[in-house]
């Protein structure tokens, strides 16, 4: 989808920002995530792919504790995720998340959607929060929609608002859970373009997506998951051209 020729050249730093070690998760008796180990550097962009049901969404949802893990450790920006609610809230304020179905708040205007977090979590004064919101709406190219309600704008615009809503919290990390899967084809590009611009700004990003063009353009690393395991991790070109693992080859042959 995205222009495949250009590769964004901002290198990640040496410093780790997310450390997942020996992490397991069960739904009842069902072992969804098996021994996940992943180290994400500050400024690194990781695309996670894999067949449906492979646990990729569940894994990134563990990073802001929308899902609870039962074994192993997840350390985000120096805070370990445990049952401690204060820590969870701290991590959530630093980690932005964009969902497949946007999940905008339908009873609030676009600008109110954006200012909710800054005003209530960051305690930013209302006027300042509104300026912040307008700033990020310009970044996602829809400042003119500020006073509308989510139901009045298109899916692609809603997803861009959702991205702006996360950005208003000035997160260190952005998680994207299949951000373009619920969009009509003609709207996918406008969302991916915003994400690419975000990548150019050096944001740490974990993206679950099937957009392989996007993976080639922006990812430092591609992670392939299957049956709740990380099967293979590699740089995008090596990943697509010379997949090591048989399961990866099978997957790529099905989607490319």
């Amino acid at each position: 989808m995205a222009t495949e020729s250009q590769i964004i050249n901002s290198a990640p730093s040496e410093e780790s920002i997310i450390k997942i070690a020996n992490m397991h998760k069960w739904y009842g008796d069902f072992h969804v995530l098996k021994d996940i180990n992943l180290d994400v550097k500050k400024g690194e962009r990781i695309v996670i792919c894999g067949p449906s049901g492979s646990g990729k969404s569940t894994m990134i949802r563990c990073i802001n504790r929308l899902e609870e893990h039962q074994k192993g450790t997840i350390d985000v920006n120096g805070i370990e995720l445990t049952n401690d609610l204060k820590n969870i809230e701290k991590v959530r304020a630093e980690v932005g998340m964009v969902f497949q179905h946007f999940n905008l708040f339908p009873h609030l205007t676009i600008v109110e959607n954006l200012t909710l977090g800054p005003i209530w979590v960051r305690k930013t004064p209302k006027k300042e929060a509104e300026e912040l919101a307008m700033h990020y709406l310009e970044i996602v190219h829809i400042p003119e929609q500020a006073q509308k309600y989510p139901g009045q704008i298109s899916g692609g615009q809603q997803q861009r608002v959702a991205i702006a809503r996360s950005l208003c919290m000035k997160p260190e990390i952005m998680l994207f859970d299949e951000p373009t899967s619920a969009l009509d084809p003609e709207m996918i590009k406008e969302v991916l373009d915003v994400m690419i611009e975000l990548a150019e700004g050096g944001m740490t990003m974990l993206v679950v997506t099937h957009e392989m063009g996007f993976a080639k353009t922006v990812a430092h690393r591609v992670v392939f998951m299957d049956f709740g395991e990380i099967v293979e991790t590699n740089e995008p070109y090596a990943f697509f051209d010379n997949p090591e693992h048989e399961r990866t080859q099978l997957f790529l042959s099905q989607i490319l």
Binding site: M97, N103, L116, V121, S166, M169
Partner: peptide
């Protein structure tokens, strides 16, 4: 998804209920 979106921007339980869930 409304709960998740509210939680993911860092709202606590009472804020989530008061600002997002109960109004709807």
């Amino acid at each position: 998804g409304q709960y998740e979106a509210a939680e993911s921007i860092g709202l606590n339980y009472y804020q989530t209920m008061r600002l997002v869930i109960l109004p709807q």
